[in-house]
Design a protein around this nucleic acid. Structure first.
Lengths: 260, 260
DNA sequence: TCCGTCGTCC
DNA sequence: GGACGACGGA
């Protein structure tokens, strides 16, 4: 039997919202340590890795390891029915082919329970090498979302150039070209507004902005996003999930064209 | 001549919004007692009955009984032009084939008048038996709306089970199955948030959720909805219209399939 | 509150 | 297959 209870069910809903555009169905790996998920998007371009540690749940019980094939599309629909401050319990009974999501309103007067059929998915476990990145940019996730949205208006690709003083996002296309530069924050009024750069080596990498915009669906999970980069290595775009884990998105850089 | 004046014209607009999806045109019966309307939806599945008593109007005059065939679609369009706090006057002159809607702004500085052609409709007067229901559930109309919308995501039908302690709405379909249970309120902080159940006999009835969602278009009329049910009897779903009348929707339960 | 997408009806 | 209306998201 598997049962995990989260007082703030909305966190889980945000996780699903953060994943579902990139990955419509995926296999969840449940063990005593927590829940993990790894998947590539349907065109096998981007990769996502989710970790939710068991100690982040209010209660957590996992008698044996389980692989659960789940439609994130359906799960998202069910989670939309959750009240704003509901407590969420996720349960899989032994020998059941369904996952049960229970939601309790804070005043205990409302109780909803939804059952989703589990799916048989070919689960590709993906080895993600631990990389020592040349550069890690930390910035407000809302700012990153806005920049990616804006760059998408200009073109399909965004080039991220990072030096020790700042980071520049640039795009060009039919409408024109443009770039936005953020300097590393000096006075950190609010931690969450800070832009900080850890840099061993300057980088300049180009990415398909469409995928970055999908990654940004996870932005409501965290005030800050971490962008870790090295030349010729996939970008890692990380959002923390409270203090219980993270979502990490990976995207290989485009090979630079002659004209860039 | 017929003339009825309503200081709060928005109430009348809400009545029309509450009806127009189910019934696009209908015959209004005007008499000295007030206005009534009865109609079935186009597929003859659901029935609606409207009562607006004459004493609920600011002024009311009806020299002789009249049957007015009206396009609710057109009337809705006209009422959308009404200002938020306008006073509405409905008038039918003798020997006229039109109904005139006059709207005055509160400051008397704006005055609009629209004329709608009356229609010749075969008016079926429907006998609605007075039923002594086994169970009456009273709940916030917003909550009922949300539940019906959610249940529609899961499937075409919703099963309502009511016992003396609470009421449960359930649905099943492709995405999965689910249910939501409301307990009878114990401490009534706000009257309008209360869930209360008068029960002589427990009921479990299944309805086409599509129609319930149409009924919910009338929810803005009232904070509370009354669901009156008996086995093998049409549901009555009632919204009060201020203290001047009500809209009552009727819907026959589905015959239970073997699998339920 | 307005715009875009999806579903239903003609 | 096209048009209209409803619903959900930005």
């Amino acid at each position: 039997m598997f049962e995990a209870r989260l007082a703030q069910g909305s966190i889980f809903a945000k996780v699903i919202e953060g994943l579902r555009e990139l990955v419509t169905e995926a296999t969840w790996e449940c063990s005593g340590n927590g829940i993990t998920l790894q998947a590539m998007d349907s065109s096998h371009v981007a990769l996502v890795s989710l970790v939710l540690r068991s100690d982040g749940f209010e209660t957590y019980r996992c008698d044996r390891n389980m692989s659960l094939g789940i439609s994130l599309t359906s799960m998202s629909k069910v989670l939309k029915m959750m009240g704003k401050d509901d407590t969420l319990t996720i349960r899989v009974n032994d020998d059941s082919d369904a996952i049960v999501l229970s939601m309790e309103s804070q005043n205990q007067e409302e109780f909803a329970e939804y059952e989703l059929r589990l799916m048989d998915l070919d689960s590709e476990h993906l080895g993600i090498p631990d990389t020592d990145y040349s550069c890690v940019v930390k910035m407000p996730s809302t700012k990153f979302s806005r920049i990616c949205r804006d760059m998408a208006i200009l073109g399909d690709s965004v080039t991220i150039c990072s030096t020790k003083d700042g980071v520049k996002f640039g795009a060009k296309g039919d409408v024109g070209q443009g770039s936005i530069r953020l300097n590393q924050s000096t006075n950190v009024d609010k931690e969450e507004d800070a832009v900080s750069i850890e840099l061993r080596e300057a980088v300049a990498l180009t990415f398909a902005v469409r995928y970055l915009n999908m990654f940004c669906k996870a932005a409501p999970l965290s005030n800050q996003v971490n962008l870790s980069m090295s030349e010729d290595t996939p970008l890692m775009c990380e959002f923390k999930v409270g203090d219980m884990g993270h979502i990490r998105f990976y995207l290989a850089p485009k090979i630079e064209d002659a004209e860039n």
